[in-house]
Design a protein around this nucleic acid. Sequence first.
DNA 1: CGCCACATTGAAGGCAGTCAAAGGTGGTGG
DNA 2: CCACCACCTTTGACTGCCTTCAATGTGGCG
Lengths: 230, 230
Amino acid sequence: MNIEPSLKKCPLFSGLEDGEIAELGGISISKRYPKGALIFSEDQEAKGFFVVISGRVKIYKLSPEGKEQILHIISPGQTFAEAALFDGSTYPAFAESLAETRVLYFPKESFVNLIRKNPQMSLNMIASLSHWLRKFVSLVEELSLKDVSARLSKYLMDLSAQSGRSSQRGIEFELDIRKSQLASQLGTISETLSRALRRLRDRGIIKVEGKKITILQKEALEEISLGIPL
Amino acid sequence: MNIEPSLKKCPLFSGLEDGEIAELGGISISKRYPKGALIFSEDQEAKGFFVVISGRVKIYKLSPEGKEQILHIISPGQTFAEAALFDGSTYPAFAESLAETRVLYFPKESFVNLIRKNPQMSLNMIASLSHWLRKFVSLVEELSLKDVSARLSKYLMDLSAQSGRSSQRGIEFELDIRKSQLASQLGTISETLSRALRRLRDRGIIKVEGKKITILQKEALEEISLGIPL
DNA sequence: CGCCACATTGAAGGCAGTCAAAGGTGGTGG
DNA sequence: CCACCACCTTTGACTGCCTTCAATGTGGCG
């Protein structure tokens, strides 16, 4: 499989000349991870960053007691650990594949050299980092200022906007991760998530059948997602 | 007062030629805010970013019920709202002066033009954004995985490392903000912070006299900051 | 068919938030 | 310079959300 098409779809490399893309291909290393592999650990020296070609990767923190907080789940076309190259020398979190995953790995030194010479790529990097930043502001806001129901509702709204299909009953879609992983992403645990889903279901706002969700009352769900007290 | 000295001390502009600094001075606008002034609101169109010359600025989110989460407190020499220029068109949070504050304001368009032409400044911007990102990862970790005592202990450790003086009793320093603001920064409220301080005091780990803190048992404080259960 | 990991549900406990009131502090104007 | 007042801080009692612990239900896969 040729890697260039994957790179072209990646926002970090948009607007680059074909020659530059080829150069990127030259310095990158293709890697494969089976499901559940540890790609890097927190505090490990950051020697490069990654572009996901296929599969999925979770970036997460662990508490001393073992509770997990997922910072982000990376899908194909997205990059991760860019920031670690430019601030400090270690990765700030763990990265683990959620499925069989293929990535391109860019060693720090050659990539930094390349970015120094290429203004367009600098601008893309700035855009990418800014985007991450906004995501984190949002995450902090939710963790600090909203309860689990609001965070869950927001997640469901977002996912339905992205991959929902309208049916006669409402908007249908499938959860793309395990519920225990969703709980970690929402800053809670599976038991609490289960109860939050049940409350929404009991109030007739959503229907839950395994991983399939149907939003029955979009307005109510949105209100809850905004943190308006029930 | 000449503004150039302030710019030279700012990490975002380090390594720039004097001519480039002068150019920055040319596009920037000096602004003054009294204590407690709203510099910008969440969702307001982001028309520029800021460098703090003197005073202090808090960047914060508000919940619908009015609870405040401080994302960061900006001190002289630091920048804020850079990221808003490159991702989305609005500020993601509120900004308010904590004291009489002077800033330099850089209008979006002229600054973006300038950064396009200046590779060094792009790299500085990447470094700045990366640094912010690491701070936010840390904030998310603390809010999600640590209790108030651990967050407070970490704050006290950091502040003591930065501005603490050794005395015979321990490490002394002064809180640089009001306790209610510290509570907001730690993702809690003043009552809870007050009780957390009292627990540390009752256990003989710190001494509290108004804003003056003395760390009596550094090791114990560090253990708590790591989230190890008491 | 049966195992195993994930998911759900119930009961109980704890940390932090809310409400209320008293104590303290700093700033301002007389 | 002092007195007053507004606001911050502290403390107490109570509530509630979430976690913990434990047990049962369920679905996929060998």
